[in-house]
Computed example of a mutant assay.
Amino acid sequence: MTTFFRSYWDEGDTWFYFEVGDDAWVSRQVELQGPELRPVVAARASDSDVRYGMTAEPPVTEWEGHVPEPLTAEEFERVWVAARRRITARLH
């Protein structure tokens, strides 16, 4: 079952949004940075276009020190679509 969550990193003032597959690997990831929530990553694990960034490794079952906040698929999708649009607009 696919799960969705977000986690905040104080040091980088960054929100991380994740879509995680049954295998515990990140399939899509968004990073929003600073008080303006500027998208810096909106990557798919299958992306070959590095302009959107890369997804986290290793599987989430091996992560330490993060506090996941559950999201619905709809909440993740809204953030995903907005981040991809903003990054794409900056690239052109």
Rank of each mutant, 00 (worst) to 15 (best):
W63D: 01
V50R: 15
V50M: 08
H66E: 03
E62P: 02
Y52V: 02
V50Q: 13
A56W: 07
R38A: 01
V40F: 07
E57V: 12
P35S: 10
L32D: 00
D49C: 04
R38Y: 05
S46N: 08
H66A: 03
G34F: 09
A56S: 14
E57A: 15
V67S: 13
H66M: 15
W63S: 02
Q29K: 03
H66S: 02
V50N: 10
V50A: 15
Q33E: 07
D47R: 13
P59M: 15
A42M: 07
Q33M: 12
T55K: 04
V30S: 02
T55P: 06
S46V: 14
Q33W: 10
E57N: 11
A45N: 03
A42L: 07
P58A: 08
E36L: 14
L32W: 00
R51S: 10
V60S: 05
T55M: 08
V30G: 01
L37W: 02
M54N: 08
Y52G: 01
E57G: 14
A56G: 06
W63L: 04
G53C: 05
Y52C: 05
A45W: 09
T61P: 02
A56I: 04
V60Q: 05
V30W: 06
D49P: 02
P35A: 11
E57L: 14
A42C: 06
A43F: 15
V40P: 01
E31C: 07
S48E: 09
R51L: 10
G53V: 09
E57H: 10
P39E: 06
D49Q: 04
E31A: 07
G65F: 12
W63F: 13
E62R: 12
P39W: 11
L32S: 00
D47A: 12
Q33A: 03
E64D: 08
D47Y: 14
W63I: 07
E57D: 09
Y52R: 07
H66L: 15
